[in-house]
Amino acid sequence: MTTSPVHHAVLILEVDGAGAHPAAWRLDPAGPANVLQTNHTAQSVLAAESAGFHAVSFQDSRLAPEHGPEARLDAIQRAAYLGPLTHSIGLLPVTDAIYTEPFHLATQLSALDSVSAGRGGWIVSGTGNPVEGAAVGRDAVASEDLRAEIADVVEVGRRLWDSWEDDAVIKDVDTGRYLDRAKVHYVNFTGQRFSIKGPAISQRPIAGQLPIFAPEQLAEGHDAVLFGAPDLDALLAAAHEGAGSGRRFAEVEFLLDAAGESAAARLETLNCWDNTEPAHARFVGSAEDFTEFLRTLLPLVSGVRLHPAVLSIDAAEFAALVLPELRKSQLLAPITTGNTLREVLGLPVATNQFAAL
């Protein structure tokens, strides 16, 4: 099949820790003690914003990493910290939908959207790992129940975000009323494992509904799908197959030649410390070749979530050498300060499901 080029693709940069490769912390100039410091993340995100990335994501898990610095920082808290420090870049925490209380999760994400002026979003995760459940005193969720459980959590989040209409806050001094209570709604949700009466404890998010990304195997009630493949050829094949079927974002890990060292040599060094198989299709090579690969991929998808193997090296090389060429090719969505993440993604205005009741 033939596909017309998409000239509004979105680039998301993953900025967790030192990079996607499990040994990346060994090459980070900040050192292992500092890669999880908030100022380290802030520097990476501000550099990404200046370079012209559309959004950044923050990987998260309740499990301590098997390698490198044995700690995690909550993804929503990191994103919220960066909300007031940034101006145009979207902020996408990767957050568990299985072992997090749905009401609290919706509230935290709504707060993120507020402090970022509508630039918040949510990448849904949910492995049902029993060790993660034990960390918060929850029973394991059977694999066959994961999809339905995540769909319930997403549905509750959407209902809670709509439980206040946009004009529910009236601040009527004469009558002493802060709210028009007719415009604040109970969500009255009952699922298989939990129920929520509602309403939310704060007003509707600035964007109305935060954009929700979900992995392909968990996708339901989402705005965009994240898909991957074991290698680059398979990724292109999956992109061709899904072209034109909604908003789809490809996941790619990459290593670029830098400072006179080939990407292959650096990967060999990293693999000497840890030779774990990559979680995503991996590109290894020059900035020029990666640019050509993305020129082929981007017209087939809504965007790419980029996982730099070593954040301090590969993201900088991409920003300096690849991103400007993609801009010249007119393949990327424009960057405009003041836009919500929904607007950047080309999503329609979020209507309130309760407003017409």
Score class of each variant (00 low, 15 high):
residue 190 T to C: 07
residue 192 Q to Y: 01
residue 192 Q to K: 13
residue 195 S to P: 02
residue 195 S to M: 11
residue 196 I to T: 12
residue 197 K to H: 10
residue 198 G to D: 09
residue 198 G to Y: 03
residue 198 G to P: 10
residue 202 S to P: 01
residue 202 S to C: 05
residue 202 S to N: 11
residue 202 S to H: 14
residue 203 Q to R: 13
residue 203 Q to F: 13
residue 203 Q to I: 11
residue 204 R to D: 08
residue 205 P to M: 07
residue 206 I to C: 02
residue 208 G to R: 01
residue 208 G to D: 06
residue 208 G to P: 01
residue 209 Q to W: 10
residue 214 A to T: 15
residue 214 A to S: 15
residue 214 A to W: 07
residue 214 A to M: 15
residue 214 A to P: 06
residue 214 A to D: 08
residue 215 P to V: 07
residue 215 P to H: 06
residue 220 E to R: 15
residue 220 E to H: 14
residue 224 A to Q: 06
residue 225 V to H: 00
residue 225 V to D: 05
residue 226 L to N: 02
residue 228 G to S: 14
residue 229 A to T: 10
residue 229 A to C: 07
residue 230 P to C: 12
residue 230 P to R: 11
residue 230 P to K: 11
residue 232 L to F: 10
residue 234 A to H: 14
residue 235 L to W: 01
residue 236 L to K: 06
residue 236 L to H: 06
residue 238 A to G: 02
residue 239 A to H: 02
residue 239 A to R: 06
residue 240 H to N: 13
residue 241 E to N: 14
residue 242 G to D: 08
residue 243 A to G: 09
residue 244 G to P: 09
residue 244 G to W: 09
residue 244 G to D: 01
residue 246 G to R: 11
residue 249 F to H: 03
residue 252 V to T: 06
residue 253 E to R: 14
residue 253 E to I: 03
residue 254 F to L: 08
residue 254 F to Y: 15
residue 255 L to S: 12
residue 255 L to A: 13
residue 257 D to Y: 02
residue 258 A to P: 04
residue 260 G to Q: 10
residue 260 G to T: 09
residue 260 G to F: 02
residue 261 E to S: 12
residue 261 E to I: 11
residue 261 E to R: 15
residue 262 S to A: 08
residue 263 A to D: 06
residue 263 A to I: 05
residue 264 A to M: 09
residue 264 A to F: 09
residue 264 A to S: 13
residue 265 A to Q: 12
residue 265 A to D: 14
residue 266 R to T: 13
residue 267 L to D: 11
residue 269 T to N: 02
residue 271 N to W: 04
residue 272 C to V: 08
residue 272 C to W: 01
residue 274 D to N: 15
residue 274 D to I: 00
residue 275 N to G: 10
residue 275 N to W: 04
residue 275 N to I: 00
residue 276 T to G: 09
residue 276 T to H: 11
residue 280 H to R: 08
residue 282 R to S: 08
residue 283 F to W: 02
residue 283 F to Y: 13
residue 284 V to P: 00
residue 284 V to H: 08
residue 287 A to C: 03
residue 287 A to N: 06
residue 289 D to W: 01
